[in-house]
Amino acid sequence: MLNAGDYQAIWLTLKLAGLTTLFLMLLAPPLAWWLSRSQAKVRPFIEAMVALPLVLPPTVLGFYLLIAFSPDHFLGQWWLELNGSALAFSFEGLVIASIIYSLPFAVQPLQSAFLHLDKSYLEVSATLGYGRFERLYRIIFPMLLPSFIIAAALSFAHTIGEFGVVLMIGGNIPGETQVLSILLFDHVESLQYMQAHKLSFILLAFSMSVLVIIYGFLQKRQQRVLNA
């Protein structure tokens, strides 16, 4: 049904989305916490940067990243010296780009959860002997687990559906940067409609399932809140 190239693209896509989600789940909680608490003057600026991928055409983001990744520029040069390979047209480059591209999907659900967190839970945690950071990862983050699941699911699903950014910086190398959405584009370009149908359906079914799961989760939480 699917050929070897299709399977390779599916695996690569899952690997990219998995790694991106993992990094985002490390990066987003502290960032979201800071955004929900900080009164700093730079906050609106940082907040705008985080949200930028929501409104910017992915090709614009991809274009700037392509330039930043080139060995002529600081980031690309630093990476080249460190690893001996270029960042542009590499899987590592895709992971970095995906983290930036999916950042708002990880940060925003968490930021909203942190913002609505009742301060009294933090106070109680302190009186129970938990320090500043321990309070968060031992008590508050587990308490807000549903929001973390939503953030992770959205980041994962959004990375799977990435196209414009990958197109700009990926270079369509099978097994390295050729993800599902790019391969689908290839199939259509070469008039292989049957293959395109299959891949499209996989992406459609996957996205739909993720969203149903997320909204099911939200509904349960809403019921709990209404019942409490």
Binding site: S120, T127, L128
Partner: peptide, 10 residues
């Protein structure tokens, strides 16, 4: 607070 050895009930 976490170092104060107090119990709190609100």
């Amino acid at each position: 607070i976490e170092k104060r050895e107090i119990g709190a009930v609100f």
